[in-house]
Every structure is written in C-alpha cells, then in structure tokens.
C-alpha cells in the first residue's frame, strides 16, 4: 500500500480516538465552567475534582435498560442515533493539524486528507447530520418527538445556509476551498501601515465571523437556539424516547459537532495552527478551546430564543447581512485586483 495512504489511515485513527476522548471530557468541562459561572461547584465527588464524572456517566448509560417503544419503526429507531454519532467526527478528516512531521524518515502529513473542496466537504457532512435528528424524531412513534425533530431539522437546515454563505467571503479572499491552503495563506503577514498583523480572516471578514459563530451555535442545536430540545418545551424533542446508550449517542454527537465546528472556525477565521512564536497544533487547540468556552458562556448567559424568533433571525436578519457581506467582499476584491 502507498505509504501516504497508510499514514493517512493511521492518522485518522489517532484523530478519531483523540476526538472521542475529548468529547467525553467536553461534558465535564462544560459542567465545571457552567458551575463556575453560576457560582456553584460542579461535579467534585467522582474522582479527584470530579474528573471521573464522564466515565461514570458513560458506564451508567451503558448499563441502563434499552427501551424500544412498541409502535416505533424499529430499524430507523436503531439507525438514527448511529447516523448522528458516526457522521459527526467524519468532518474532522479535513482539518489540518499542522504541516508535516518526520516520523522514522517518512513525511507524515498532519491532516487526514487535503481535498481541494475541503470546506464544502465539511458543509456536506454537516448537512447529512440532520438525518439523525429527523429520523430520530420520526421513529419514536411519539407525535411530540416528531414535531421536535421537524422543528430541529428546519432550524438546522436554515442555519446551514447561513453557515455556508458566511464562508463565501473567506473563499473570495483566499481563492481556494482547501483548508490547508487557507491555513497557509493566513500565516502571511498583513502590513497595514505601521502595524504588522497576521493575515487572519477574522480581521478581513469580521461580519462573516460573527454570522458564522451565530450560525454555528444554531447548527449544533445549542443554547440559545436549543428550543427543539429544551426541557420545558418538548421534554427532549427528538431524543425523548431514547434511553441508555442510544441516548448517549445523541448526547455525545452534539458535543463532537461542537468540537469539530470550533476546530473549523479556528482554522478558517483564526489561522489554525498559526501562532506568534512557533506554529503548531497547540495554537489550534487554544483557539478551539476559546470557541468552546464561548459556547458554554453563551449557554449560561443568554435566554432561549422562541422558535419563530429563531427562524426570523435566520431568514430576515442574517441572510440579508451575509449577502451584503458577499457583495462587499466581491467589490473589494475586484477593486484590489484592479478589475473594477
């Protein structure tokens, strides 16, 4: 087998395992940070400082009884959480964790694949993730689950459009869809008179960055856009009827997609592995951690949006803004290229 292919596979396995471990501890991180923001303590009994809490949660969920409702569509009921959980980390295949390192004389690329439509691949996998939600809501044989699933799906596909459109500005400026290319372009410096700034796209596309953040929060069904699965509204939305480890698939799929979108946002807008002192994967980790903290911060601070306000925000406010952003970016680019 080709050495490149083999190293890609091995790197993919490594990334997957790291992501799965991180996702479990993301739940712990969230509970601790939420607690700190609410003047509480958070889990601190299970293990030192509560570090073994995610493991206890996971084991407990594995040992719960597995209930399948009688009138549920059995095959789809079993399929839906798997779809959510499997498609979530697949999107991490295009995120560049660095350039390449030398392992035993072979050049190993620190990304699983460098596709020339990498950002579109990411959006495509994100748009496939909505199936877990719809099918989960449908298969539960519970009309409130169905409604919750449909609401959730409508929200996700609306904000997917906004997510994709907000990235077009970045693509116009960088001229490429490949994430490796985008990261390497951001490591150049921008000379604005006396200032020497890195060419991060957050500086050239601030509006798109804000819109992307809002759309990312809505895309992963997180607060304040989590009405479809809010406890006081629809009990659990599409995952009401799931118990035990199937529920844990849905639960964890949400956290994985949070982590992946944070990595993606860090790659596209904040330069990825670019850093002032030495380029490396730790800068990417720090930037992604900032985004994850922002997610949790948003959850504890802002009240929930009502569903019609949510959809109104997407279609009436964000969509025009993002189209204006594309227009402006296009003009500025043409002006810069002298083609106006």
């Amino acid at each position: 087998m080709d050495a490149n292919l083999l190293s890609s596979y091995i790197f993919a396995v490594v990334v997957l395992n790291v992501l799965l471990g991180l996702m479990a501890y993301m739940t712990y991180f969230e509970r601790k940070v939420m607690a700190a923001m609410q003047d509480r303590v958070g889990p601190n009994r299970t293990g030192p400082v509560g570090l073994l809490q995610p493991i206890a949660d996971g084991i407990k969920l594995l040992t719960k009884e597995d209930i399948i409702p009688k009138h549920a569509d059995r095959r789809i009921f079993l399929l839906a959480p798997l779809l959510s959980f499997v498609l979530a980390p697949v999107a991490a295949a295009v995120i560049p964790f660095g350039d390449s390192i030398n392992v035993f004389g072979h050049e190993v690329n620190l990304y699983v694949a460098d596709i020339n439509v990498a950002a579109l691949y990411f959006l495509a996998i994100g748009s496939m993730g909505v199936y877990g939600i719809i099918l989960g809501g449908y298969a539960s044989a519970n009309r409130y689950s169905l409604l919750g699933g449909l609401r959730s799906a409508a929200q996700v596909i609306s904000y997917e459009i906004i997510l994709g459109l907000s990235l077009i500005g970045v693509f116009i400026l960088s001229g490429s869809l490949s994430l490796v290319e985008i990261v390497s372009q951001q490591s150049e410096t921008l000379n604005l008179g006396p200032l020497q700034l890195p060419n991060w796209f957050i500086l050239s596309q601030p509006l798109a960055f804000v819109i992307f953040l809002i759309a990312a929060v809505a895309e992963t069904n997180r607060a304040p856009f989590d009405l479809p699965e809010a406890e006081t509204e629809l009990i659990g939305g599409f995952h009401t009827e799931y118990s035990g480890f199937r529920f844990s698939f849905f639960f964890l799929a949400e956290y994985i997609s949070m982590i992946i979108i944070s990595l993606f946002a860090a790659t596209i807008f904040l330069g990825g592995t670019d850093g002032p002192i030495r380029d490396g994967v730790w800068w990417l980790a720090i930037k992604a951690a900032i985004f994850l903290f922002f997610y949790i911060w948003l959850r504890t601070t802002v009240p929930r949006f009502r569903y019609d306000q949510l959809m109104g925000l997407a279609w009436k406010v964000l969509l025009p803004l993002v189209l204006i952003n594309i227009l402006l970016t296009g003009f500025i680019r043409l002006w810069g290229l002298g083609m106006l």
Partner: peptide
Amino acid sequence: AMPRYDIAERFGMLYRASPRQAD
C-alpha cells in the same frame, strides 16, 4: 439544586426531563 447546596451537579446528578433517561 441551586448554588448553595448544588445537589444537581456535585454528586454527578443531572436533571433530565424525559423519564426514559432518568434513574
């Protein structure tokens, strides 16, 4: 469940609305 006593988080207990996910 509020900050002073924090039954909801300290012991690892979490409140869920759906009975299928509750112990």
